[in-house]
Design a binder for these strands. Structure first.
Length: 739
DNA sequence: CGGTAGAATATTTTT
DNA sequence: TATTCTACCG
């Protein structure tokens, strides 16, 4: 296997690729070919006879991991397929913990709580302790817990720190430590780990079980970490544990693109790397291959205002390019309209819609932009929003799955004990929970053992309802060794989830039914991929991959991209519009007071500008409609910081641009689901006609008024004699043709 | 126990 | 404005 690609690397890139031993820091500016260097480096290691399974490559997002995997597959000979350990921190550590969790007091079939689960647990604790919901806002409390965990401050450590407790006293949150303890206990007793635990428990495992640590140190002789500026304290600590023996640690990142401190990322992990390890070899990738000189120079002049950074000079040898444009608008609506007009013109000159991206600081800014684009009939896609697996109906079904593999999982049990409603209400649940807590047992134990259940004061009817539930669940538990698709089908039928939604076929519920159908689809695909795949594998995979619905649309439709600056990281577009450059918005109000926070906002702006290949268009509005009121604004302080030599004179545009009459909104992919197109045969009932009489198991007789075969799922509108008009999905609805 | 109406509240986001 | 949460009534 010979690789010639190395010839096309520049000297710094090549040096970084070839330097394999010892601690290495690669500082990679925007557009400097970072991913290429990482993948080439892995290929180079394998060429040097390093076994692939001795290489650990960590990323932050699944997307980055996937991209790297495919690129490595392209350059490495496929015969060599003992795989590199490549994935996100969380997925790799979850894999380790699946094997070793029993050593630190968990069962290996632990389940994983996402943020929503965690906040719910905190909310329950706060309510139970009868604390004030304003002072002890569950979301805030959880984020504080998460932050502490990432700082390696466990409840005991917190308890022993007088300054922390003093602060709580001052803020009237003296009960915080109590909540923290209870939260950790709740997770522990449910045999569940939250996202932070996946890191924290790995750290604990390596700290307490030296033989296990030795094993993984030997396994991971070569370690690579991408986006090191985004690591938090636990992640940094684990890398130090694993890398201690061979010290072949290669970190890649750009301190100037660190924009996640609000979730615990610590830029100092990168800045201190050189002092922690002796003789760190440092490589700087300073040539930007992406943007014009004007863009690079403008971005440099901005970031120069930051004090905390690593010295480097990013340069471009591309053409000088156009100067940056700056627009002043009368208000947000005007901003949206004018940008749409500009994009419309650009398209007429022959550019694609996908050559344009509009970046904003907050999601709420997308609305006025959308309106503008829609008026001109320009296709757009909004990135972000809820992931498929965060949807309520999906989480409901998943809760049953989780419970099936881990009956200790109280959170999942509480989620579905009365969904679909089966007469077990809040007071009953409270009594059950109190009993469980008193007896120090799980909720499932409390309700499934008659002698324990009988100690709780409940009406005969309630007890009957509970026993119906436990009988049903026991039947489901019997399925554990079946094929996962079979389990899923039976489960959905037995629990009545689908029936409940069918009974009330609002548009929302139809959507939910489609989503559940989609979940079944993906389970089917998952089970076909490898017959050994178990339910726990499936849960694991989806708990850790929050791929957004619309990220997976692979069709060729052309659209303008709308997203927050955070989401744009790692992407590039020829034309980049950065909107809402106003003090209090960008930089955001909350981050305007402290120097460190302002620096992060500045990095954020730096990231935004460096996404552009050809041209950057900046804008602000002198008044903005927010939270229902109109506010006068001032232009962002960052605009004064960019060297004016690179900016075209500001253009003021106050008049409304003329707009064409409104065309039907082409809401492309907006919060819409990806569908794996199922074989249509299953989803259609052939021979249905408008005017036909049918009968439905619940609504009785009715007449078909219309049939909709789009979206891969047949929907029919039926006028029922007794229940009026309903929209039904023929895939799910139990109907009989009468005429 | 369950649904709904009116109040409260409002970055950035991945795992 | 838009969403999420709480309190109350049937």
């Amino acid at each position: 296997m010979k690789l010639n690609v190395q010839n096309s690397l520049n000297p710094q890139q090549l040096a970084a690729v070839k330097s394999t031993e010892g601690p290495i820091m690669i500082i990679a500016g925007p557009g400097s070919g970072k991913t290429r260097v990482i993948t080439e480096r892995i290929a180079h290691l394998i060429n040097k006879e390093v076994k692939a399974e001795n290489i650990l490559a960590l990323t932050f997002t699944n997307k980055a991991a996937r991209e790297m995997k495919t690129r490595i597959q392209q350059i490495i000979n496929n015969n060599h397929t003992s795989p590199v350990w490549m994935g996100t921190f969380h997925s790799i550590f979850a894999r380790i913990l699946r094997k070793e969790a029993n050593l630190i007091g968990y069962d290996n079939n632990f389940t994983i709580y996402d943020n929503e689960d965690s906040v719910k647990i905190v909310r329950r604790i706060v309510t139970d302790l009868k604390l004030d919901k304003d002072n002890y806002n569950p979301k805030y409390i959880y984020s504080k817990i998460s932050f502490l965990k990432n700082q390696l401050i466990n409840p005991d450590k917190y308890d022993k720190d007088p300054t922390l407790k003093e602060q709580d006293q001052k803020n009237k949150r003296s009960q915080f430590i109590n909540i923290y303890k209870k939260y950790c206990n709740a997770c522990r007793e449910s045999n569940s780990m939250d996202f932070d635990d996946l890191l924290l428990k790995t750290h604990e495992l390596f700290q307490t079980k030296k033989d296990i640590l030795a094993f993984y140190q030997e396994s991971f002789k070569y370690i690579l970490i991408d986006e090191y500026q985004d690591t938090n304290k636990v992640q940094d600590a684990i890398i130090k544990q694993i890398g201690e023996k061979y010290k072949n640690i290669c970190i890649v990142g750009d301190d100037s693109q660190s924009i996640y401190s609000f979730r615990g990322a610590n830029i100092n992990n990168m800045l201190n790397f050189k002092t922690f390890y002796k003789d760190v070899k440092e490589f700087k990738l300073e040539q930007n291959y992406r943007s014009t000189q004007n863009i690079v120079n403008a971005a440099n002049s901005l970031i120069a205002y930051n004090k905390y950074k690593i010295d480097k000079t990013i340069f471009s040898k591309n053409e000088e390019g156009e100067k940056i444009q700056l627009f002043e608008y009368s208000n947000g609506r005007n901003e949206g309209n004018n940008i749409s007009a500009m994009i419309s013109q650009s398209i007429q000159y022959g550019n694609k819609k996908s050559d344009h991206a509009i970046l904003y600081r907050t999601n709420s800014q997308s609305k006025v932009i959308e309106d503008g684009l829609r008026k001109r009939g320009i296709n757009y896609k909004i990135f972000g929003g809820l992931s498929f697996y965060q949807r309520k109906e999906i989480k409901d079904v998943m809760a049953f799955f989780k419970l099936l593999v881990n009956q200790y999982d109280d959170e999942s049990l509480l989620r579905i004990i009365n969904y679909p409603t089966r007469g077990i209400g809040t007071t009953t649940i409270l009594k059950i929970r109190q009993q469980a807590e008193q007896k120090q047992i799980t909720i499932w134990e409390t309700i499934s053992k008659p002698d324990i259940l009988n100690t709780i004061e409940l009406t005969k009817n309630t007890k009957k309802n509970i026993s119906f539930f436990t009988i049903m669940m026991n039947e489901i538990f019997q399925l554990i060794n079946n094929n996962i698709f079979e389990i899923a089908k039976t489960l959905i039928d037995k629990t009545g989830i689908i029936r409940r939604l069918q009974d009330d076929p609002t548009e929302e519920n139809i959507n939910r039914l489609e989503n559940i159908g989609e979940l079944l689809n993906s389970i089917k695909l998952f089970s076909m991929r490898n017959s050994n795949n178990t339910l726990i594998d499936f849960i694991n995979e989806i708990s850790l991959d929050e791929t957004k619905d619309n990220e997976e649309i692979h069709d060729n439709t052309d659209y303008v991209s709308l997203m927050t600056v955070h989401q744009s990281k790692g992407l590039e577009f020829p034309y980049v519009y950065i909107v809402g450059l106003e003090n209090g918005l960008f930089p955001s109000q909350r981050n305007m007071r402290e120097r460190q926070l302002i620096e992060e906002e500045r990095r954020l702006f730096y990231v935004a500008m460096t996404r552009a290949i050809k041209k950057v268009i900046l804008s602000y509005a002198i008044s903005r409609f927010q939270f229902g009121t109109i506010n006068t604004t001032s232009k962002s302080l960052f605009l004064e910081e960019i060297n004016h030599f690179f900016i075209q004179k500001v253009k003021k545009k106050y008049e409304q641009v003329e707009t064409k009459p409104t065309i039907k909104p082409p809401k492309l992919g907006h919060r819409k689901l990806t569908r794996i197109k199922a074989s249509n045969d299953d989803n259609y009932i052939k021979g249905l006609k408008i005017g036909q009489d049918i009968s439905h198991n619940i609504f009785g007789k009715g007449e078909i008024k219309s049939i909709d075969n789009t979206n891969g799922n047949q929907k029919i509108t039926v006028l029922f004699i007794e229940h009026g008009t309903k929209i039904l999905l023929t895939k799910f609805a139990k109907i009989k043709i009468l005429t």
